[in-house]
């Protein structure tokens, strides 16, 4: 793995170096320009600094696939207009950058710090308007969500891919809908509004923001649900139950039968 990523880094070293020079020049210019045209606008300054940082990170880590201006390439989609939410989801859940060119990106520890992710998101958001990262004020699912309503919405809109208990499920050609256990509420929200990878987009009219909070609250309630009838057997339905019945049930009883039918000495 490490070798692979090193290789990738090496592959992008040349263009990256070249671009770094450009970036530095560009940045310096932008900085000077900013100070000249809008003196004292610190908030917008901070933002433009983040955009600049984000662009740097982007050029180092993402541009080899997504293109120098995030316009997309042969293997990766354009990021123009995907919005900050999409970046926060993809990078924050470790899906991007991808480990390899498999059928889909999977959740893994993020390679970037929160600050770096935020900068990246800010940069991509600066390219064209798109869904923003939901803030804490928006993610009030504990207060505004309704678990039962969320369950109903989940079963209609999500369960066919993610399974009725959010355990994940199979899609076509080896793709999977991931398990939703242990996913940050923010990331769940972002996934619904951005439709990452195979997942469709659930707009705010199809599922209102309040309904989205209900869904999150329901997922969290499933996540925190303790065993009610013993070991859960993976919550994937009758397959594991059947296996258990044969191995733990008939298997055990056959073992006992052998004991029963053996002559005592």
């Amino acid at each position: 793995m490490r070798k692979l990523s090193r290789l990738r880094r090496r592959k992008i070293t040349a263009p990256a170096l070249l671009l770094l020079a450009l970036v530095i020049v560009g940045n310096a210019y932008a900085f000077i320009g900013a100070t000249v045209t809008t003196p004292g606008a610190t908030a917008s300054n901070a933002r433009s600094t983040m955009v600049t940082e984000g662009r740097e990170i982007f050029l180092r880590g993402c541009s080899s696939c997504h293109g120098l201006n995030a316009e997309g390439g042969g293997v990766a989609p354009s990021l123009v207009g995907v919005g900050a939410a999409s970046v926060d989801f993809q990078v924050g859940t470790g899906r991007m950058p991808m480990a390899d060119m498999s059928v889909q990106a999977i959740r893994k520890p993020s390679r970037y710090t929160a600050a770096e992710t935020a900068a990246l998101a800010e940069y991509v958001a600066s390219l064209a308007p798109g869904p923003a990262i939901p803030g804490a004020a928006q993610l009030t699912f504990e207060r505004d969500g309704n678990t039962a309503e969320g369950g109903e919405l989940f079963r209609t809109n999500c369960a066919m891919c993610h399974n009725a208990a959010g355990q994940g499920g199979a899609l076509t050609q080896g793709k999977q809908a991931p398990s939703l256990m242990g996913v940050e509420p923010r990331h769940i929200y972002e996934a619904m509004i951005t439709g990452p990878q195979s997942m469709p987009v659930f707009g705010d009219k199809a599922i209102t923001p309040q309904e989205k909070l209900s869904i999150i609250k329901w997922i969290k309630s499933v996540e925190n649900e303790k065993g009610l009838g013993g070991a859960s057997l993976g919550k994937v339905g009758p397959v594991t139950e059947g296996l258990m019945g044969w191995v733990g049930g008939i298997g055990l009883l056959i073992a006992i039968s052998v004991w029963l039918a053996t002559k005592s000495r």
């Binding site: 109903e152 469709p200 987009v201 659930f202 707009g203 705010d204 009219k205 199809a206 599922i207 209102t208």
Partner: peptide
Amino acid sequence: PGNRRLRPEDLEIGAVA
């Protein structure tokens, strides 16, 4: 669920309802 009417612009490209 919800029983809300929908307009075309409520669905972005890639969206389902």
